Computed example of a mutant assay.
Amino acid sequence: MTPLTRRVLTAMLLLAVFVPAVLWAPAWLWAILMAGVIGMAAFEWARLSHFPLQSARIYAVLLALGALVLSNGLAADWPIFQTGLILLGITFWLFVAPLWLLGHWHAAQPFVRAAVGVVVLVPTWAALLYLHARGPGVLLGVLAIVWIADTAAYFAGRQFGRHKLAPAISPGKTWEGVAGAFVALALYAGALSLLAGMPLLPLFLVIAGLLYLSVLGDLFESWIKRVSGMKDSGDVLPGHGGVLDRIDALTSTLPIATGMLMWLERSV
């Protein structure tokens, strides 16, 4: 079986499980499922940070359970705390992550890595809960931006890739891949505009901004892997690597997409 075949089959299996969960899982089950995903990603983050195996397990369990306890224990105060988590994620991705990549920071100290893992993963979980509560169409519409960009970049990069995007961070990524993602998302924006009656220019600008964030999240995880001396964050997903490899772009796009939706809802 070729690597591409494994990649496609794994993606199809993931979609076969994930899409029904989006459509039919009640809020409590969705929260548990997504906490499980974030817990697996947290374990991989800890291993990338060279935590001992037992410490990585404890970190992952504490992060996943802590997220669930917060959403249930805070009760009526959860929406306020959820907004705070989204703002934390927005701040990190708009200001800290670009500086991190530009400065080629290592930040190898265990406490720093543990804290950054929380900032990267917990706001993503909060965003998944918020978007799911707004309906399957909203969540899938946002997720599709990252999925389309990732797929188009992969095939465009394989076919046409010549010019490296950030060779010091991720030698495999190319400007041609980004261009392919941009074209695919422009078509997606046009389709959304026609089908949903949304104004094309604002929609296109939002999607273009989320493409930038998608690339940023991908590059950020690539840099962490490069510093750690690891090719993939894990091996649980054949053809894709680890869970963190699959959600890296979501960690940067979902909090900001959620923040924009929150702003729109409160502006109406």
Rank of each mutant, 00 (worst) to 15 (best):
R113Y: 05
A126H: 08
A153G: 12
L192S: 07
R7F: 05
A11I: 08
F95I: 11
A166K: 07
A27E: 14
M260H: 05
R226K: 12
A115C: 14
G135L: 06
I207L: 02
L203H: 11
L140I: 14
F92R: 10
A186V: 04
A42L: 00
Y154E: 10
V112N: 06
D77M: 15
R162C: 00
L187D: 03
L244E: 06
V138F: 03
G234N: 03
S170F: 02
R113F: 03
W45R: 02
S214Y: 05
A189K: 07
S170T: 03
G117N: 07
V120Y: 10
A56K: 03
Q54C: 09
I32A: 15
L200K: 08
G157W: 02
S228Y: 09
I58Q: 10
F182D: 03
G161S: 07
L237M: 05
L244Y: 07
I145H: 07
I86R: 05
P199G: 11
G197E: 04
I247T: 08
Y212M: 14
S71M: 15
L85I: 12
K231D: 07
R57M: 14
L195W: 13
W78C: 11
P26Q: 09
W30Y: 15
A181G: 07
G117C: 02
V227A: 13
L48H: 06
D150T: 09
P52W: 14
W93A: 00
W30E: 06
L205A: 14
S214C: 07
G73L: 11
V119D: 06
P79D: 13
Q159F: 12
A181R: 01
Y154C: 08
I169A: 08
